[in-house]
Design a protein around this nucleic acid. Structure first.
Lengths: 210, 210
DNA sequence: TTATGTGAACCATTTCACAGCC
DNA sequence: GGCTGTGAAATGGTTCACATAA
């Protein structure tokens, strides 16, 4: 099933999923699109459109059954399989991610770490083996790793992506480097740029008559 | 001058700014929209539209003068003044941000830190005084802090925003908590949700015939 | 009556295509 | 000739309004 879903929709699906998990824990059995919208700051019509994208899941006149909807969205978002990920850069941000609660999931696992720190190479960080970035192609192929998370300086990011792409197994990259990366053929790149987000916030604060 | 600029445009302006800084360092004098587009993965027409939003800055048949364009965009993005920011949550992520190079800027300064760790309260972290979150309204008012950066668990985030809003000085929040926040009246909230970004990446990998 | 599902209208953003200037 | 600036067209996403079902 190859269904094209808009990016903002995927983002909201993740939000619905988290909210429904909460509601489930609170013992809530049904919710309306109206209520979901209020809790998430969205229009009810938006919620309904998103949820109806994958078939009729709600009951007219009643609302959505919490558990059923949760499982439904979960099955849409959940990968059909487990992803193997490597973290490149075991600095403060990298270590923060390793210890990040919301980052633990059965959808993926972090199989290798790469860093240039000689003290870390050959040993383990948070129980995960650490290698020198030079061995990226080799290790990625060996461990069948398809996704990279980059927590390294901007200056090193593009080189790492290009090197990693040589393994031939690379499918996606989540980068925290404050730079724009050019994706090699067949590689999907997502960037989370913390400093850009702050700049945007300050820009809009400035322009909202502050 | 209150000009309404679309959010995607602002994001790209920040990217142009960073790229131009690089080009300047490399001694480059002119660039074309075509070249900027290639380096940033954008269409040349997109680049031109963005850059022409604030007046004619390029030279037809030639391109854009690097330094001139850089200063021009900088003046658009730069706040007219300095922002005072407080960081809430001095855990690993918070400390990573404090040490983050791209986060150092003359546009803002981090004036206070809030954390529930008794060892940190009353002392300083990275040279910045640390307080208990209970004193948020008081300290924000006292120091005239208008922006909050949240690096705390999702469960605490909304309460912190509501408490901080009581100070009356709060204008904006940049949250890293994996939850959706409801903004009090007059407060602008930006969320960077790391786990959502990873979920999105995995979703699209799944759907790109991986 | 209440709340979903959805085509149609609306709005925002991107891309095109070409006129205008260097 | 080359490259910008920009209306107009195309695309993408959100909101409306109402038919439909419990």
């Amino acid at each position: 099933m190859t269904m094209k879903v808009a990016e903002p929709t995927v983002e909201r699906l993740v939000q619905y999923c988290r909210l429904l998990e909460h509601l489930h824990e609170e013992g809530r059995r049904v919710v309306s699109s109206q209520e979901i919208g209020e809790m998430l700051g969205l229009k009810a019509s938006q919620v309904r459109k998103d949820l109806s994208y994958f078939g009729e899941i709600g009951k007219r006149g009643v609302g959505y059954h919490v558990d059923r909807l949760f499982e439904h969205i979960r099955s849409i978002l959940s990968p059909p399989r487990h992803w193997k990920i490597a973290l490149v850069g075991a600095g403060r941000l990298g270590e923060a991610l390793l210890g990040y609660k919301a980052f633990r999931s059965d959808k993926f696992s972090i199989e290798a770490i790469f860093d240039i720190d000689r003290d870390k190479i050959g040993s383990t960080v948070a129980g995960i083996p650490c290698y020198h970035p030079d061995s990226l192609p080799e290790i990625l192929k060996e461990k069948a790793i398809e996704v990279l998370i980059l927590t390294i300086p901007a200056s090193a990011a593009q080189a790492v992506v290009d090197l990693a792409a040589k393994a031939g197994t690379l499918k996606g990259v989540l980068s925290f480097a404050p730079t724009t990366l050019v994706a090699p053929e067949g590689v999907l790149i997502y960037g989370v740029d913390i400093s850009v987000e702050l700049e945007k916030l300050l820009f809009y604060l400035k322009h909202s008559g502050a």
